[in-house]
Design a protein around this nucleic acid. Structure first.
Length: 291
DNA sequence: TGCCAGGGTCTTT
DNA sequence: AAAGACCATGGC
């Protein structure tokens, strides 16, 4: 089926980005992306690829236990952030020379969201202060510990375990995966929150304002300003959210502003506060400066 | 080889 | 309030 996007969208740009992510929850191959998901226990495997027409994508369901097309369409729209008014961001970006090159080179690039709250919480903890390659490996070990996958054409398509399943793990189990003791505690703490509802996607979405939701998140042990913003930006989709202090963002500023060294937090706060509701996308495009 | 990685908590000044 | 210690390990 074809999904048309209201505004700029370039699947090729998205694919190049996804290919470099090494996220165990989807597979990129031959300019196609495949992913397995479970919707209320009904598992689906689907494939996303470039559509013949511009600003659109092609979705094909390869295996379905009864979830249906509609849920998959909603999922894909959420995943690729298709409802965002990207043109409005480009209007904003035209006023700032920092975005001149990247908005041209990556025209049609949208945020790759984390649809699953457990996924984003785990990732925002595992990703703290370690190199990305290793972080992706740790996530892979955690996911693969649970036997949730769809096998198709000889490949396994992994599905994120539910929070309740993560709770069956001990800190020692995760230490064996080389996840640090602290992070293992954080992961269990967050999984508990998802289970009891205090960190459920619905509850976080119910916060009217970005700052209130952020305050709630940072009150949780293991979630600091960076992790809170990752969750709010990539799952709850508060467009003001910026992972302040992010190492990549600092490096990007060093490049765009031609600084001798990475800027301090005050320097960045000044600029970020001016981004307002374009903060999340400004961050995404700043990251692209890093290549 | 040592510093840096898409940080956060806890403790100490 | 601000700074330092510690976590853990791979990548370059």
């Amino acid at each position: 089926m074809i999904m048309r996007v209201d505004g700029p969208f370039d699947f090729g740009v998205m694919y190049d980005f996804m290919e470099r992510q090494d996220d165990c929850l989807y597979r990129t191959w031959d300019k196609k992306v495949r992913r397995a998901e479970s919707f209320d226990g009904r598992r689906v495997l689907f494939e996303v690829s470039e559509a013949a027409e511009p600003d659109a994508l092609e979705v094909e369901i390869l295996y379905d236990e009864g979830a249906g097309e509609r849920v998959v369409r909603e999922y894909v729209a959420d995943w690729f952030d298709l409802d965002y008014d990207l043109e409005r961001f480009y209007e904003f970006a035209r006023m700032d020379k920092r975005f001149e090159g990247v908005t041209r080179e990556y025209y049609g690039f949208r945020m790759l969201a984390y649809v699953n709250i457990t996924d984003v919480l785990v990732w925002s903890i595992i990703g703290q202060q370690i190199n990305m390659k290793f972080a992706f490996e740790l996530k892979r070990r955690l996911v693969a510990h649970f036997d949730h996958f769809i096998e198709y054409e000889g490949e396994k398509y992994w599905i994120m375990p539910r929070a309740g399943e993560l709770l069956t793990l001990s800190v020692e189990d995760m230490r064996e995966m080389q996840i640090s003791r602290r992070k293992a505690e954080y992961i269990l703490n967050c999984a508990e929150g998802v289970e009891n509802g205090s960190l459920s996607k619905e509850y976080l979405q119910s916060f009217g304002s970005y700052s209130k939701a952020k305050a709630h998140l940072t009150g949780v042990r293991g979630i600091g300003p960076w992790s809170a913003n990752v969750v709010l930006m990539r799952t709850i989709k508060f467009r003001h959210a910026v992972p302040v202090g992010d190492a990549g963002l600092r490096n990007a500023f060093k490049i765009t502003d031609r600084l001798d060294k990475k800027p301090d937090s005050r320097y960045m706060e000044d600029i970020i506060s001016g981004w307002g509701r374009f903060g999340a996308y400004a961050t995404l495009y700043m990251w692209r400066v890093l290549g």
